[in-house]
Nucleic acid binder design. Structure first.
Lengths: 200, 200
DNA sequence: GTCTATAGTGGGATAGAC
DNA sequence: GTCTATCCCACTATAGAC
């Protein structure tokens, strides 16, 4: 077994920990999940968990970091080729919803368990989340600037309301509920852009 | 001190526990809050907490129960005198948002810490929450039935999206943030009914 | 790299005096 | 009705063998 072999094996173990950890954290909560459960999900015993992570909190930090990197990359790419402000908003909504439903465990963990992080860990993740929300705000700002969106709702509240609409989905979405991420996003786009009032 | 006096005193202590408990649970989380902290917030010691509640979980159940009773009563009353389907939707949004921002600690606790409840406790609260969501759905159903709302978004997803828009507010609303509950609700009504697109 | 064993800590809940 | 004292348990993290 070479050094490279060892590294790859370790990386697989870390990835598995993140995957199973996100599942446990999102279903039971961070502090209701024990390191023994985390270890069992990795098929090792409690002590071995600490070979891969210095602490339980460090696993949480890793999951949050990865989730934010994932959604930031997905949305950045989605709006990259947008033809107009409205198109960018539409692409962003689809990309955001697709990401949080496809990786729902890690995004639920990031969105709801972040407060369990302390000190430096907390500061780093909050900063990354703020950067992502700035990205969303800038997409809306562009759509306002080109005249696509009404000015009667100010940029800051409009951004918050869009994030409301997008994020609470983690609490009810389940695979096989009869609605895909893109189908949910379609309805959000209709509602966010045109509202629910009957135009007839 | 009469029996009535004792009862009233006990009731005040229970109310204080619910008030301070909701604050602690919403800020730190249910399982990160100790019974010693709860007792300190009531100005008693750990042991005394158990004179008022059989368990920590029972305090959580009480807080959730009260929050659901409060919002159900508020919204029921608000839509009672509505003149049309659209008016009822508008009144519901205002009433819901006003309630969750004015009693934000208890509603945050109910919405985010419910999963810490087990067995019978859990079943009771989930049932009450389902009843509240049915109320919201019925208000939207009426507005669809009288032709106010478009049919292109089905009732079930429309209800979920409205609850998305309303509920995520607990994660960012702070008193003195420069926006009152009614000001937030105004923007939600505009967005939910007419959308963000510039009509010009 | 994984194990067993355990140190060390803190919290939920109870007992019993006052 | 409130206190002090404490039981008992579970959990995070570490030590050290293999």
């Amino acid at each position: 077994m070479t050094a490279i072999g060892k590294t790859a094996r370790t990386q697989r173990a870390v990835e598995r920990a993140c995957h199973e950890g996100a599942k446990l954290f999102s279903e039971k909560g961070y502090s209701e999940t024990t390191t023994r459960e985390l270890a069992a999900a990795m098929d090792v015993t409690n002590g071995t968990f600490y070979y891969y992570f210095p602490s339980k909190e460090d696993l949480l930090r890793q999951i949050c970091e990865d989730a934010l990197a994932e959604i930031t990359a997905a949305v950045t790419k989605a709006v990259d080729g947008a033809e107009s402000g409205l198109d960018a908003v539409t692409q962003m909504i689809h990309s955001h919803v697709r990401t949080i439903v496809e990786s729902r465990h890690s995004h639920t963990t990031m969105l709801t368990e972040l407060r369990a992080l302390n000190g430096e860990h907390r500061v780093t993740i909050v900063a990354a989340r703020d950067r992502y929300e700035s990205l969303v705000r800038e997409i809306l700002a562009s759509a306002k600037a080109d005249g696509s969106l009404k000015t009667s709702i100010e940029l800051a509240p409009l951004t918050l309301l869009l994030l409301n609409l997008l994020n609470w989905t983690i609490f009810w979405y389940r695979p096989n509920m009869g609605l895909t991420g893109d189908e949910i996003a379609d309805r959000m786009v209709t509602l966010f852009l045109n509202g629910a009032v009957n135009p007839a």
